[in-house]
């Protein structure tokens, strides 16, 4: 038996919005410590990994490990039927070919139930090695989204260059070129606007903006995004999954990590 309840169902909606255009089908692995999902996009250029801690749920029970393969587009459709303030429970019985989604409205007298068919998906699980990255940039998620969107007007790839003075995002195309430079800054009053750069060695790498723009669909989950880079390894774009409660308290309940293979010079 598997049962997981989130008090703020909107978090699940945001997670699905962040991944369902990149991957249409995926398996959730459920264990006593939480739920996780890993999947590559169809062209095998990027990989998304979602992790939700069991203790981030208001109720979490997983008697034995389960793999819940499903169509994420369909899951997203059903989650659209939940109100933003609804409590959402996911339930799966051992050996069943479907999961149940229960939405409880805040008024406490309205309960909706939906079922989704499960699928047997080929497992394509990749082992991601522990890597210590040369460069880590932590910046406002909305700023990163804006830069990727703006530079995509210029070209279809962005070169991220890090030096001691800061980080440059640049693109070149038929119409010309453009770049955005950020230097480290910190504000005591608005930590969500901080740019933090940690660098061992300067580097420059190029990535397809098509994928980065897909990753920025996770922007509503968290005010800051972390980019981790090293030469000749995939870029990591990480968003923490933050649940905001009624009392405005913020609770980190997991993360989404996107990995993107670099472009290399011919």
């Amino acid at each position: 038996m598997f049962e997981a309840k989130l008090d703020r169902g909107i978090v699940l909606k945001k997670i699905l919005d962040a991944i369902n255009q990149l991957v249409n089908e995926a398996s959730w692995e459920c264990t006593s410590s939480g739920m996780s999902l890993q999947a590559m996009d169809t062209s095998h250029v990027s990989l998304v990994a979602v992790n939700l801690n069991g203790d981030g749920f208001s109720k979490f029970r997983c008697d034995r490990n389960m793999v819940l393969g499903m169509n994420l587009v369909n899951l997203s459709k059903i989650l659209k039927c939940a109100g933003n303030d609804d409590k959402v429970t996911i339930k799966a019985a051992d050996g069943d070919d479907k999961i149940k989604l229960i939405f409880e409205a805040p008024n406490e007298y309205e309960v909706s139930q939906y079922e989704i068919k499960l699928m047997n998906l080929d497992a394509e699980y990749l082992g991601i090695p522990e890597t210590s990255y040369n460069v880590t940039v932590k910046m406002p998620a909305a700023k990163f989204q804006r830069i990727c969107r703006d530079l995509n007007q210029i070209g279809d790839a962005v070169t991220i260059s890090c030096t001691k003075s800061g980080v440059d995002f640049s693109a070149t195309g038929d119409l010309g070129n453009g770049s955005v430079s950020l230097s480290q800054n910190s504000s005591f009053d608005k930590p969500e606007d901080n740019v933090t750069i940690s660098m061992q060695e300067p580097l420059s790498q190029t990535f397809a903006l098509k994928y980065l723009n897909q990753f920025t669909k996770a922007t509503p989950l968290c005010s800051q995004v972390t980019l981790s880079l090293s030469p000749d390894v995939p870029l990591v774009v990480e968003y923490k999954i933050i649940e905001e409660n009624e009392e405005d308290s913020k609770n980190e309940i997991g993360h989404i990590r996107y990995y993107l293979a670099p472009k290399i010079d011919d």
């Binding site: 590559m40 062209s43 095998h44 250029v45 990027s46 990989l47 394509e124 699980y125 990749l126 082992g127 991601i128 090695p129 790839a157 070149t172 190029t206 397809a208 390894v233 995939p234 990995y259 993107l260 293979a261 670099p262 472009k263 290399i264 010079d265 011919d266």
Partner: peptide, 14 residues
């Protein structure tokens, strides 16, 4: 610019 690499050339299938 540059050739696109694939993610599964960096991470091994388990």
């Amino acid at each position: 610019k540059g050739a696109q690499t694939r993610i599964d050339t960096f991470f091994k299938m388990m």
